[in-house]
Design a protein around this nucleic acid. Structure first.
Lengths: 227, 227
DNA sequence: TTTTATTTTTAGTCTCATCTAAATATTTAT
DNA sequence: ATAAATATTTAGATGAGACTAAAAATAAAA
C-alpha cells in the first residue's frame, strides 16, 4: 500500500502523462506537487525501487502498469468524493477539490465501491473530468480545449482544465458548466479571444486563457448563411 | 492543527478519561494506541508543550480544555462517519470502525457540519455511542453496564463497550442492538452469568464478560409477583 | 564547438514519530 | 523499611519526507 506522499507523486505523474510511455521531467513534477526538484529526485528513486515508475536519471520518468493502476485508483477516489461532496452535501464545485484531496487517500476498496454505487456509478466529477473505473480505465468521448474551435463550430462543455476556485466561480456565473452548449461565433485575431453563444442564449467574450481551459466535445459546425 | 498521531493520542486519552481531572497513565495509553511506553512519553511531552494535556512525569496526564475539545472533535468525526457508513452505504456495524478510523482525520469543519446535517443530526453512532456536538459536549441519558442490573430490572440497550467484530456479530445474531428492550430475569451466583429476556420475547443467557460489555439505560424494576 | 544557462542529482540537515536498551522512579512485597 | 518487581523516562538510532547548498549533467547560445 502506497503512502500518502507516494500517492500524491503518482497522481501528479498520471496527471502530466497518463500513458505509460510518455516521459515526465523532474521539474514538471516538482511544480505539480509544489516541492523542490531535490525532493522529487528522492521520491523518484523510491518509486522506481518499488517498480511503480521507470526512472532514467536526467531523462524523466513514466508510470509502470502497476504505478498507473495505483495512480488511477487515487484519481478515481478523488473524483468520486467530489461527486459526493457536490451532489450529496451541496458543496459548490469550486470547494470540493481541497477536501477531496484529503479523502482520496482513504484506503478501503469496499468503501470506494459502495460509494460508487451510492452515487449511482457517475461517469464524471462535478468539473466534468471522467472518473476511471475499477480497472483504471477511462471511457467516454474525448474532449478538446474550446480554444481550438473554428468560427461556427459548436459543442458541449465536458470539463475544465484549470481548477482554480476563482476561475470556477467565473464559469459558474456565466453558466459555463459541464453540459452547457457552446457555439463559437468569431475569433479575434489580435488577442485570440473569442465570442461565444451559451445554450443558444446569451453571447459573451472569452480570453485565450479562459477558452483554452474549457474542454468541449465537438458536435459539428453551423453552416455560415453567407457562404 | 493536530497531526494524525497527535489526534490518535488525544482520542486515546479521551477514551480512557473524558474528564479533564481524571489522570491516565503512560502504560494505559501505550496499550490503547498499541505502541511502546517510550513512544508515549515522547508524545506526551509534545502534547504538553502544546498545552493540550497537563503532564506530570511519572504521575500520568489529563486533557486540558483545549485538548478535550480537539479529542471530542476527532470522536465526533469518527462517529458521524460511522453513521454514514452504516446508514448510507450499508456497511455492517462491525465493519464501520476501521474505515472511520481513517476518515476521522479529515480536517474540514464545513465537511463535518454538512455531513452532520446530511445524516439528520444523529445523536448516537451505530454502536449506540453518543456523538459529541460541535462544542464537544455529549448529551442524552447515561448508561450502565448490563452486568450491574439486579433481578427484575429492565432497560433499553444504548450501546456496547467492546467493539470487537466477533462480539458485534454475536449481538447482531441475538437482536441485542441499541434500542432493544432487556429484562434481567435472574443472575447465576456461581459464574455471574445472567438470564435475560430480549424485547419481551426470547430468553437467553449471557456470560459476565458479555453482560459487562453491553450498556443499558435503566427503565425500572418489575415487581416480583411472589413478594 | 566552446561557453553559458538550465536542469537534475548528490550531500548534508532537519523534523516527526517510532524503536530498543539502559537508567531512574515508583509501587509492592517481604 | 528495605528489597524486589513494575512502570516510566532518558539516550541513542532509524526511516520517511522534506529542505538548502553545491556538484554534475544536459541543453541552449554564441
Amino acid at each position: 500500500m502506497a503512502t500518502l506522499s507516494e500517492e500524491n507523486y503518482l497522481k501528479a505523474i498520471w496527471k502530466l502523462a497518463p500513458d505509460p510511455d510518455a516521459g515526465v521531467s523532474t521539474g514538471e513534477i516538482a511544480a505539480e506537487v509544489k516541492t523542490s526538484a531535490a525532493s522529487v529526485t528522492d521520491m523518484l528513486k523510491k518509486l522506481a525501487a518499488r517498480k511503480l515508475i521507470t526512472y532514467q536519471p536526467y531523462h524523466g520518468v513514466s508510470l509502470t502498469v502497476q504505478g498507473q493502476r495505483l495512480a488511477a485508483d487515487v484519481v478515481r477516489r478523488h473524483r468520486l468524493w467530489e461527486v459526493f461532496l457536490h451532489e450529496k452535501l451541496g458543496f459548490g464545485w469550486e470547494e470540493v477539490h481541497d477536501i477531496a484531496e484529503q479523502l482520496e487517500h482513504i484506503h478501503s476498496e469496499a468503501l470506494t465501491d459502495r460509494l460508487d454505487r451510492f452515487l449511482g456509478f457517475p461517469k464524471t466529477d462535478p468539473h466534468g473530468d471522467r472518473i476511471p473505473d475499477k480497472t483504471g480505465k477511462i471511457s467516454g468521448p474525448s474532449a478538446v480545449p474550446l480554444s481550438v474551435f473554428n468560427d461556427g463550430e459548436y459543442g458541449i462543455i465536458s470539463g475544465v482544465i484549470n481548477h482554480a476556485p476563482s476561475f470556477l466561480l467565473f464559469l459558474e456565473k456565466h453558466g459555463l458548466k459541464p453540459g452547457a452548449a457552446i457555439e463559437m461565433k468569431e475569433r479575434m485575431e489580435f488577442d485570440d479571444s473569442m465570442n461565444i453563444r451559451v445554450n443558444g442564449k446569451k453571447t459573451m467574450t472569452l480570453s485565450r486563457d479562459a477558452s483554452s481551459s474549457i474542454l468541449v466535445i465537438r458536435k459539428g459546425k453551423k453552416q455560415n448563411r453567407k457562404s
